[in-house]
Design a protein around this nucleic acid. Sequence first.
DNA 1: CCTTTAAAGTTAGAGTTGCTAACATATGTC
DNA 2: GACATATGTTAGCAACTCTAACTTTAAAGG
Lengths: 212, 212
Amino acid sequence: MPSDVIGAGPPARSAYHHGDLRAHLVAAVSDLVETHGPDGFSVAEAARRAGVSSAAPYKHFRDRAEILRAVAMTAMDQLRADMVAGAAAHPEGSAESVAGIGMSYIRFARTRPGVFRLTFSLTEGHDEAPELLERGQDCLATVAQAVARCMGLPPDAPAAQARAYMLWCFVHGHAFLTIDRKIEASPAAAGIDDWAMLTAVVAGLLRLKPPG
Amino acid sequence: MPSDVIGAGPPARSAYHHGDLRAHLVAAVSDLVETHGPDGFSVAEAARRAGVSSAAPYKHFRDRAEILRAVAMTAMDQLRADMVAGAAAHPEGSAESVAGIGMSYIRFARTRPGVFRLTFSLTEGHDEAPELLERGQDCLATVAQAVARCMGLPPDAPAAQARAYMLWCFVHGHAFLTIDRKIEASPAAAGIDDWAMLTAVVAGLLRLKPPG
DNA sequence: CCTTTAAAGTTAGAGTTGCTAACATATGTC
DNA sequence: GACATATGTTAGCAACTCTAACTTTAAAGG
């Protein structure tokens, strides 16, 4: 998905200097993580794919972990964009717009499961990547905003925040369970499609009494 | 946690033969995954901890991935045991017993986040580890059974199965979000503790109309 | 009880990787 | 046009995965 952006610009200025190695590396690693799993990726292989020596990546990234962080960051940005688009596909303030965000989230997870997992399970440099946390919070804020509009509350109302978080637990869990395939809905219940389940849960949660 | 079992038996028969290297390795790797992350573990380091040469592990496991699969398998077993215990701590058929299972799940994830993540995100040899999938389904069956009893339905009733799966999406998502810390409940909603949230969601889901 | 066989260790080594150091070559600025 | 800098290169070390060939111990059969 990021690969189509790569050849667009006018880089590749010379045979020696690559032009836009950093972006190429991020795209290559994103691909590798997707196909070979998060630990099946190597800096050397990514460099090979980009057509540079195995030492070149270290001019752009301090170490292996920093590349992964960059991949996670661009993925989180894309995820948020998808979520916003998913909300915009339905009338503002409707329950469907909330469910639409969830559908985008689930679709992202299924399309790029390796990167999705990486994005969330990356913990090695939490303190060194506060931006990643910020972007995650932005995702939740997107949900909270839609929920608040749907309930006719101000965006920072605790009731809306709590509902948004609970809802996101559900969506996040469903996304992970379907890509990890350790726990699957029973065949008897498999007929339920995502959209039906999502709208039912959204409806149920919005009229739920606040806990505590 | 598995380490206390290690010294119990009467192995360690000689200085040359280790006695129970396989179990020791699984325990060591479990520890390493927890402290150094899933990719920060090496077979060599595990062997060093067990006091054997770096080639010894390959007498018990085909490759690195097979060790990880063994770790995931024992973890899944432990998780299931915890869940059953969590249900048994409350009256049979009560909503609390369902919530109790969820609490055990969340507690497991927080106590051993690295292993928990590994257990679910392990995808490298799905076809080679059907037992892992079976054990995952057993976990869901535990939930479904409690839900069915709570609703006064037979254990295989589709309505109970669907409820159990939806509930588990929520619990699984909450468990992951709290250990991954990319998306956190807002400070305004942070006062809600796990138990209150769980019981509220259980109550809400059980009286939810089936989707579709 | 002694022999044999297989299980479970060992050392040695080939091939890959992460990362650093020292060097080479473009790019852009004064 | 000279120079500083960004961005490549090659060479190489230490660590890791996994294999091959050998050694030691445990267990089984006669």
